[in-house]
């Protein structure tokens, strides 16, 4: 058997691949956070809860109406985005003129409410959710066994990230969005409905989180607390990448997922903390983050 640094090659590749999967979720989630932060200047603490809501929406759709994975992939993010839009309109939008910390505290409270009530209603245990039939089974790549669904998740996450990046960098809507990030008053004066833009942005970010949740449902179990620990890692990812750049958030997400996977092979005890250690190192060397601009 081929060995690399004393580790059998299949084990190494297996962990590397798990790392890429985790990285896919980090990338989508930190992308959503960066999009929201870019325009609203709000750190969306409820992002983990919205991710969980996405997974639960898919699970409930299947359990109560028999609607399967593919429709859920569209319906669940739309539902979560709509709910989030209402929350933004009625509550979060009142906080924009205040210190940004209030946005963080508000969404923190929101996360507690959502996760607490789901935990109360459904219990803390995970519920299994089966993925699409067509992607069951796996493919033997010769050097490792690849479950089809997981391969699909990696491809899907890359497509999603690219699509959002294109939306923001190349379309007219994205141009409004970037302009409003620079100077909301001026954009408003040009006749663009900035408050609507803010609502749409929050809905987009929340919808992305929910989409990640649906994708995650067949891999991890659907549980009320699935997002709460993940979100803190994603915060660290965002700090490492620097909030300023959409591309930076995506790249950092994948990179850290892979690094985490590799740590599991070589020094498993540290795999929980490797992201945070890297964050501390990056902060010492480049406080603005790898892709961030010094403000």
């Amino acid at each position: 058997m081929t060995m690399i640094f004393g580790v059998p090659l299949p084990a190494l590749l297996g962990q590397l691949f798990l790392g890429i999967i985790n990285g896919s979720f980090y990338a989508i989630l930190s992308l959503g956070l960066a999009v929201i932060f870019g325009l609203l200047r709000v750190i969306n603490f409820a992002h983990g809860a919205q991710y969980m809501l996405g997974a639960f929406a898919a699970y409930l759709l299947l359990a109560y109406t028999g609607i399967g994975f593919w429709p859920a992939l569209v319906i669940a993010p739309l539902v979560v985005a709509a709910v989030s839009a209402v929350i933004e309109r009625t509550m979060l939008s009142r906080l924009y003129d205040l210190d940004h910390l209030y946005g963080l505290l508000f969404t923190f409270g929101l996360a507690l409410i959502i996760e607490g009530s789901f935990r109360w209603y459904f219990g803390a245990a995970g519920q299994p959710y089966s993925g699409p039939q067509i992607l069951s089974g796996g493919t033997n790549l010769g050097f490792m066994f690849l479950p089809n669904y997981r391969g699909f998740v990696v491809v899907a996450s890359i497509v999603i990230c690219l699509a959002v990046w294109l939306l923001i960098e190349k379309t007219r809507l994205g141009a409004y969005l970037r302009a409003a990030t620079e100077n909301p008053q001026l954009v408003q004066a040009f006749g663009v409905n900035v408050p609507l833009l803010l609502t749409l942005t929050y809905a987009l970010g929340a919808g992305l989180a929910a989409l990640a949740g649906v994708l995650a449902a067949p891999i991890y179990q659907v549980s009320p607390l699935m997002g709460s620990n993940l979100i803190i890692i994603v915060f660290a990812v965002v700090v490492i990448g620097g909030m300023g750049s959409i591309g930076g958030a995506i790249v950092t997400g994948y990179m850290l997922g892979i690094l985490e996977g590799l740590t599991k092979v070589f020094y498993p005890e540290a795999s929980n903390i490797v992201v945070f250690v890297i964050m501390a190192i990056v902060l010492m060397l480049r406080p603005a983050g790898l892709f961030g601009k010094e403000v």
Partner: peptide
């Protein structure tokens, strides 16, 4: 020492992340 390198909202995120690291260390 690490956290004061960032301000405002980043400070909150950095302290949260570092305390989560402490949590995992105590867990193990």
């Amino acid at each position: 020492f690490v956290a004061i390198r960032r301000q405002g909202i980043y400070f909150a995120m950095v302290t949260l992340a570092l305390s989560q690291m402490v949590y995992f260390i105590f867990l193990q």
